[in-house]
């Protein structure tokens, strides 16, 4: 009896986190709907959200994976853009627009290429962090710079355009009446959720993030696991890059720079502890939807993109304040 009480409360509070997120999402939805019912509640608005949020959602899941072990990956945007650009250059080299199949085969190769760019970039981060013991912030800051730089060198500045139709399908198509990016996001979120909570890899990451030293004494292969976590982050980042460039049908070295802040915000808002050991894909998914409602609402209210950046920043600070306040009360 003596023990069961706090335990019960803890279980509640764990679910509370998700419950609070859902409440917040509904609140944002209601406020935005009330402010501009005509435009916000239109089917078109929701449809466009299902095209827009997956790339950010995947980036946020990538951030979650890095944060689980107490790290961070500041190079995700660089990886995403570099992947898209390399795929684009590949298409320019081999694809003839006369191809009647829409270039499915070529695009499959392009996806493979983009993913291997992500894997290689993630492996580089993982190598720097686990083998050379560089702090994740600095390592990924540097590599992010290198990736963005390479992207710039490859394109010379302007965007690469002219992707095959099959590539366009990834970003703008429909599967069973649902946006392809949305379907991809759901698949990725379910897969990552399963990997993080039901496999040895995921649990090892959680344990390593909770106490790296104890992980070594418990015989966990810390270096290898952290390495694979950055590899996973890289893969996810390049997936986001594929979706992004598919949707815009272009690739550029400085696309999505504000996504870095947003991905971190979503991770923190979704209940991830930046110090490691805590975080769920479910939390991230709800947080990304909430913030998409917020930004779509503001766009409908004709706020400029810059003002929306301001709001994202303010929201991040607000979340920090609320989290701190909640922890203090508890």
């Amino acid at each position: 009896m003596k023990y069961s009480l706090p335990d019960f409360r803890r279980l509640m509070s764990r679910d509370n986190n998700i419950v609070q997120l859902i409440v917040m999402t509904i609140a944002i939805f209601l406020i935005m709907a009330a402010l501009n019912p005509d435009k916000f509640l239109r089917y078109y608005n929701f449809e466009s959200i299902t095209y827009l949020f997956p790339e950010l959602g995947v980036l946020s899941i990538a951030m979650l994976v890095a944060m689980l072990t107490g790290g961070i990956d500041l190079s995700v945007i660089g990886i995403a853009n570099l992947s898209g650009i390399l795929a684009g250059l590949f298409f320019h080299a081999v694809y003839q627009s006369a191809d009647p199949s829409g270039g499915v085969g070529v695009v499959a190769l392009g996806v493979l290429l983009a993913l291997s760019v992500g894997a290689a970039a993630g492996a580089l981060n993982g190598f720097l962090i686990t083998r050379l013991r560089v702090t994740p912030i600095l390592a990924t800051l540097g590599t992010g710079q290198v990736f963005t730089g390479l992207a710039l060198v490859l394109t010379g500045g302007p965007a690469i355009v002219g992707f095959p139709p099959a590539w366009d399908f990834i970003g703008n198509g429909k599967i069973l009446g649902l946006a392809t990016p949305f379907v991809l996001f759901v698949i990725i979120a379910c897969a990552m959720s399963f990997i993080l909570s039901r496999t040895t890899f995921g649990l090892n990451l959680l344990l390593i993030g909770t106490n790296p030293k104890a992980a070594v004494f418990a015989g966990l292969r810390k270096g290898r696991m952290v390495f694979f976590s950055y590899l996973t982050t890289g893969l996810l980042a390049s997936t986001a890059g594929i979706i992004l460039s598919g949707r815009t049908n272009a690739a550029k070295s400085d696309y999505g720079t504000s996504y870095l802040l947003q991905a971190i915000l979503i991770a923190v808002l979704g209940g991830t502890n930046p110090a490691g050991g805590k975080g769920t894909v479910a939390g991230i998914s709800i947080a990304v939807v909430a913030l998409m409602f917020l930004s779509s609402g503001f766009q409908i209210l004709r706020f400029s993109n810059h003002l929306i950046d301001f709001i994202w920043g303010a929201f991040l600070l607000l979340v920090i304040a609320i989290n701190a306040f909640r922890n203090r009360v508890r």
């Binding site: 504000s258 870095l260 802040l261 971190i264 915000l265 810059h306 003002l307 929306i308 950046d309 301001f310 709001i311 994202w312 920043g313 303010a314 991040l316 600070l317 920090i320």
Partner: peptide
């Protein structure tokens, strides 16, 4: 990250 984004966004 938050304050930087806020200040630039405001500007």
């Amino acid at each position: 990250l938050g304050t930087g984004s806020m200040v630039r966004g405001f500007l």
